[in-house]
Design a protein around this nucleic acid. Structure first.
Lengths: 336, 336
DNA sequence: ATGAAAGCGCTAACAT
DNA sequence: ATGTTAGCGCTTTCAT
């Protein structure tokens, strides 16, 4: 591997000068510069970023911790992060926690040892042990959709309530009063938040005399399917179902249709996330939108700001959700 | 940041010994060892992997170059790679090329400067300039679905022909003779391979007097939709459409249904990839399966083998594709 | 306008 | 059984 010394020797300058022409960090006589650059080109020199990082203390790498790249929630977020990262000369380590807190802790540990300049934690499986680790190690980080608002850390919040309120209003205006909610797995933070927001909205609509019930799914298609089947077997049936995420909604829809129940004629369904799938299923799914690409991009922006200036006051950004009305919701039938 | 010297000083040993207890690389008296470990724990010591890498020449990082994480083809592949990587103590840099060769070249350049131990190139946008760069820099790499078979590099191949042949046989047995193919963008290597394989299969079935046509889509839903609309406007209509990927097939199906054409009653459709979506759309899509998770895992295996032993003979692995029959294909109607 | 030399935190050959 | 020392390839202070 060719290095500064090789170049310096051949170009008849000191390693210092080589460094300075590469980094353009002090004046070098045009002729000297040219000589160095020529040698570099001839030797096909590639700077060793490890060495540079060791010397400067900056790696220009970041870590992105997510739960599961197969969950359609993540790809766009990852894209948003990666794109802006690369644009700023950063490379990103992708870490899947597989919904496992232990793996999350290990990932973060590994990232820290690799001296990444910052971490974006967008894993739904984050608990206080993770937060503690982040604070203890003094690493720079941005939290995505971590529930505790009062935490002293750069954070992105999702305002589910706006979207859910729109969804409930939408259903109410269609005459629905008996509304079920299929949640994610309750041990999941993001699932928990979504449940709480749903209940808050129900609460603030109590003048409408709503009847509701919360059933636990798993944020996957299977869970939605299973729970919806169970609903069909029950004595009383809701006229509308709101789901904690789109996959659940799609599973539920499939189960209803399989069971001979028409969506939306018999039961209306609303999802959450607005993944690409929602436009493809039929009926197209009414859902609550979360702008994942923008979220990823913004998370990276906050991280870059923080990296540039550690003393910045706490940064915060809230992403409003929004109801997208498609075909899976309609007027409540009278005979129900 | 606490380092070897701090630990050595406090534990009253030499830095060498610290290194050896950390790496378990030579015998250290139990008492000495304990003293060192205790100090490490007390100081919450975190080894600096950059420094270690600089000294050893191994980073235990790899690069994974893909086209577009939002393309449902990739998440499972990424998962397969990442999982096995982490299991072996590696972290992975994810690089999206966004279907742009220039970006691909830059990504690979960056990875090399970061001294990754190896690269998995699973981007559909790879051309000879990329291959040249890989060879020139002497980096270890594995190619996924890169067409040239005679290249002297570890490679994963996909045998589309098996699956496509099954698909065509399936269609023929259903009486179809007029079969269109909606391809991906022709400048894309993977799209090109798929076209060629389709034509080969048609060719080897010429005794059946098949009529075919190839139309260019974009490997996205929109393209499939657009092309299918165009097909509907044409004078002669195929009775079956094979698509270069599932997204295209789903878009095409949507267009047909929107145009009042029934799938599969009027036109049969077959996709390729077997992404999760295919089971959800209705009718569920008959498609040709590619085991992406296993592909990712295998790519990582080959890379690990190569990293362990540079002198290994060329490694090769071919993934057979397989027809998965669902609901989007059926007997050809007589009146067509 | 350029160079010498120390240092980033670790490893490993060579001593003892 | 442990320590000394010279790197790994770069940056950066201090000289000149």
């Amino acid at each position: 591997m060719v290095n500064y010394n090789d170049i310096a020797r051949i170009a008849k300058v000191s390693p210092t000068t080589v460094s300075h022409v590469i980094n353009e960090t002090r004046f070098v006589m045009p002729e000297t510069k040219k000589r160095v650059l020529d040698v570099m080109k001839k030797l096909k020199y590639q700077p060793n970023l490890l060495a540079r990082s060791l010397a400067t203390g900056k790696t220009h790498t970041i870590g992105l911790v997510i739960s599961d790249i197969r969950n359609p929630f993540y790809p766009e977020l990852v894209q948003g992060v990666e794109e802006l990262a690369v644009k700023n000369g950063y490379n990103v380590f992708l870490c899947n926690t597989d919904y496992d807190i232990g793996k999350g802790l290990k990932s973060i540990g590994a990232l820290i040892k690799r001296k990444i300049d910052g971490i974006i934690v967008a894993s739904s499986q984050v608990d206080s042990s993770v937060i503690k680790q982040l604070f203890d190690t003094n690493v720079i980080f941005v939290l995505v959709d971590w529930c505790k608002r009062n935490i002293k850390a750069d954070s992105l919040y999702f305002d589910y309530k706006v979207g859910i309120a729109e969804a409930i209003s939408h259903l109410i205006s269609f005459g629905h009063r008996n509304i079920y909610f299929i949640s994610g797995p309750k041990e999941l933070k993001t699932a928990e938040i979504r449940i709480r927001n749903f209940m808050d909205v129900i609460e603030s609509n109590k003048s409408n005399d709503l009847n509701y019930k919360i059933l636990e799914g798993d944020h996957k298609i299977d869970g939605g399917f299973r729970v919806a089947q169970k609903i069909l077997k029950g004595k009383i049936c809701p006229t509308a179902i709101v789901c904690s995420n789109d996959l659940t909604a799609i599973g539920a829809m499939k189960a209803l249709q399989t069971g001979g129940v028409k969506v939306p004629e018999d039961i209306s369904i609303i999802g959450l996330d607005n993944i690409a799938l929602t436009e493809i299923v039929s009926p197209a799914l009414t859902t609550i939108e979360l702008e994942r690409y923008r979220i990823g991009k913004t998370a990276m922006e906050l991280l870059l700001n923080r990296i540039k200036n550690k003393e910045l006051p706490k940064q915060t950004c809230t992403f409003k959700t929004k109801l997208i009305i498609r075909e899976s919701t309609s007027e409540r039938k009278n005979n129900n």
